[in-house]
């Protein structure tokens, strides 16, 4: 009951003629006549980045989404996304964890939390002074054709669109197209050649998108080089690595951002599988490695 009440309360409808209606939307065609809103719109005086990507992302996509959104949010950037599974939710999560502001543009009524597993995000966004936005009436169900259309609002509200992971035929590419039409900068996080999850991103880069090989690149673009970032994490990791035994360090160096099987790690570092298993266990306990699937390990990054 409490949850339902929370969902339906404090919904406002902001007409195009209202002063609160984001001025930036008036620059583009085909924008809605009004928007349903819970919380508030992104602050036009601050930079906003739309982070989009695959729902079924890989561990690489997950960690990069978290990393970029955290770093951007720490630099005062507002993060906007569609609150879908995968990259969308990790982007929002990272921003909220870093104490930044996050905004979600939904493909259903603002009183519906879709997907419902993201209710904690929905709540956090509002609590932290962000906003839930939708062009659809309250009570509208999340219909499949709503989502590509609402993407134009996501890109319009942002100063820059960052694609974290996208497959060859991905909805994220639709958003990127909108962004280009609207004259926004589009950045993509590069992936490895052959990674199905990154094909879309690499294709965007080939077409001329910016290469987001670190959050600083994005910040540079947003603040035109005037932003100086601080970097303390590097040292913390180094110190933890220093503590490791020689075998553990060797295994750690073989780990990557994507899952690798124990056999694979053995082949790369040339150690006996039992010893590798012991080292991995130790690394997991140190918080330097993570095992999400039995037999597969990847690096645990500082920002997770």
């Amino acid at each position: 009951m409490g949850k339902e009440k929370k969902l339906t309360e404090e919904i406002r409808f902001i007409k195009k003629s209202d002063s609160e209606y984001p001025a930036i939307l008036n620059c583009y065609e085909r924008m809605p006549k009004g928007l349903y809103l819970k919380g508030r719109f992104p602050d036009p005086d601050r930079k906003t980045v739309a982070m989009i990507g695959a729902r079924g992302c890989s561990n690489y996509g997950r960690t990069q989404a978290l990393h970029f959104s955290k770093m951007l949010a720490e630099a005062g950037v507002q993060i906007i996304s569609g609150m879908a599974y995968g990259v969308d939710s990790y982007a929002l999560k990272g921003a909220l964890e870093a104490g930044g502001k996050a905004f979600a543009v939904l493909g259903c009524g603002v009183d519906i939390c879709y997907p419902k597993e993201n209710y904690y995000l929905y709540e956090e966004i509002l609590k932290k002074g962000g906003g839930i936005i939708s062009e659809y009436e309250t009570g509208s169900p999340p219909l499949s054709w709503h989502f590509p259309i609402r993407n134009r609002i996501i890109s319009a509200l942002a100063d820059l669109v960052l694609v974290v992971e996208a497959r060859k035929k991905s909805g994220s590419l639709i958003t990127a197209d909108y962004a280009l039409e609207q004259g926004k900068s589009v950045f993509a996080v590069p992936g490895r050649v052959g990674d199905a999850c990154s094909t879309g991103c690499n294709a965007l880069i080939a077409q001329g998108a910016g290469i987001a090989w670190s959050p600083e690149v994005v910040l540079d673009e947003l603040y035109a080089g005037s932003y100086v970032c601080k970097d303390e994490n590097e040292e913390a990791v180094n110190w933890r690595i220093m503590k490791l035994s020689p075998e553990e360090r060797k295994v750690y160096q073989c780990l990557q951002a994507t899952e690798q099987s124990v056999d694979g790690i053995c082949n790369v570092c040339g150690m006996e599988s039992r010893l590798v298993a012991v080292c991995l266990t130790s690394l997991c306990m140190e918080g330097l490695a993570v095992c999400r699937q039995p037999g597969y390990y990847c690096r645990m990054e500082e920002w997770e």
């Binding site: 298993a277 012991v278 991995l280 266990t281 997991c284 306990m285 140190e286 918080g287 330097l288 490695a289 993570v290 095992c291 999400r292 699937q293 039995p294 645990m300």
Partner: peptide, 9 residues
């Protein structure tokens, strides 16, 4: 190393 699935340190 054989025991649990979720090991987040």
């Amino acid at each position: 190393s054989y025991r649990s699935t979720e090991r987040n340190g």
